[in-house]
Design a protein around this nucleic acid. Structure first.
Lengths: 258, 258
DNA sequence: CCATCTTTGTGCACGCGTTCACAAAGACAT
DNA sequence: ATGTCTTTGTGAACGCGTGCACAAAGATGG
């Protein structure tokens, strides 16, 4: 910034709301699609529709980045793509490692959406010696023993954990100790990390559970007989009484894909 | 507009905040782990620590469900597991279909975390005729042509989309038309659905992008990369052009795992 | 050069979610 | 039975995010 930016009002220091940051990738995706179709400019209204958000929200989001639009016209697609990419840090290359090459880990390794946005899978790591050397998605799997060396040699700062829940914390600790400061966690467990390390989690079953909640509500709307006391056992028409309410699968063990 | 459903915001006991609903699976996971260790009761403080949230928040969350705790003691683990399970609708069996059996779809099919919580994979569906009949995770893949029949025969109300982005909307439309009212979308695209249908999305690359944003901030801005004003063309040339599959990744094409 | 029209950028109000702090409730020991 | 101690349940304040509505900015046409 020493060079001084022409378009950057210094008034907006570094206060981009988290909610806005979370939407930037969404805008970027929509903009990239427009860019491919060689659309030169878009209005906030059009772009908002493409991204599935409110246009006022979109404009406010962009206002945090600076004044990149032109009144009466809209936003320049290419320019905005670059600005958002830069803001998100996607103009640089991010080497990532994936730990835990099970079904999910392998799927992630082959996921094109990573490479296409500046994320490079630097290494695949698994604890199973039988997997060592075996290529997955064109990348040879390496053993956990070399984790620290791999992290350091490749300058990795972002790690993806796709191991069983039982070993996730342990893997996390090693990653952090080796220098990783951002972790994407697919294991169904709460990771504790020191200050300065970011963790984002993706739990596949949680999403389904939230859907089930709403689904149940939809189905049980007409049940409005009399309210009052909560009948403990009335669980709607349980299609299969079998479904043992007692399925303490835990969150721990073999439930993980890795 | 199409109000349709009888929304009940006035009902005091039935108005569970969305943010609370999203945390219930988290509590359930922690409680199940305690249950397996035969822990009879927990305090809000302990459980909050295990779930990675604030104890006051946890207590308020539970207060929306009812008064299930005992002052001076805490919460009965088994009882709470049941109450939350019931509230989430997990005491019944939810048949789900997974559409798009690529790497990710296959990983989801084998994901133990589904079955363990009342979600039963009723069918796997793919558009590739070559996959028809071939078993994945022990379940034979069926062809897209039979989608409607499968949905109806199994009474499926929850669908998982793991297809390429290009066909996701189309698959979504067919699912909805066939009776599905909840959709978990892994395709990197915005789905539009009629009122009454819930959609939750999981975008793997978005999570990484958010991490990259914070990571970049940690590293500091002294990176003398490009400056604000740049010719649009060179914008994302850096790490993006690689994708090789198809032009600049977009969100559309082969970037999907399926 | 001026009028008109389009679209951005934002001040403002509202509602949701989070957090604090504490009174009420109940267990437990004496 | 009574006092003490622990922990819940919640009232209230606060902060963030969202959406409205509009003035300012700039393009466009005459």
């Amino acid at each position: 910034m020493a060079t001084g930016r022409t378009h950057r009002p210094a008034t907006r220091s570094r206060g981009i709301p988290e909610a806005t940051v979370a939407r930037l990738p969404l805008y970027l995706r929509a903009l990239t699609a427009l860019s491919e179709r060689s659309v030169p400019t878009v209005s906030s209204e059009e772009l908002a529709a493409a991204a599935g958000v409110n246009s006022a929200k979109l404009r406010k989001d962009f206002s945090y980045l600076g004044s990149y639009g032109t009144r009466g016209v809209g936003y320049d697609v290419e320019y905005l793509v670059y600005q958002i990419s830069r803001e998100l840090g996607l103009t640089q290359d991010w080497p990532v490692v994936i730990v835990g090459i099970g079904n999910l880990g392998a799927a992630l390794a082959g996921y094109g959406g990573f490479a296409s946005r500046g994320f490079r899978v630097a290494a695949l790591i698994d604890a199973d010696p039988a997997m060592a050397g075996k290529p997955v998605a064109g990348i040879p799997v390496q053993h956990t023993d070399d984790l620290e060396k791999i992290i350091k040699d490749n300058g990795v700062s972002i790690g993806v954990i796709a191991t069983p829940a039982g070993v996730a914390q342990q893997v996390c600790d090693r990653l952090v100790a080796a220098g990783v400061t951002s972790i994407l966690n697919f294991a169904p467990t709460v990771l504790s990390v020191p200050d300065g390390v970011d963790v984002r989690k993706v739990d596949l079953s949680i999403e389904l559970q939230i859907l089930a909640f709403h689904e149940q509500r939809k189905a049980g709307e007409e049940t409005a007989a009399g309210d009052g006391a909560l009948p403990a056992a009335t669980a709607r028409g349980v299609a299969a009484g079998d479904s043992a309410d007692q399925g303490p699968d835990g969150d721990v063990p073999a439930v993980m894909p890795a």
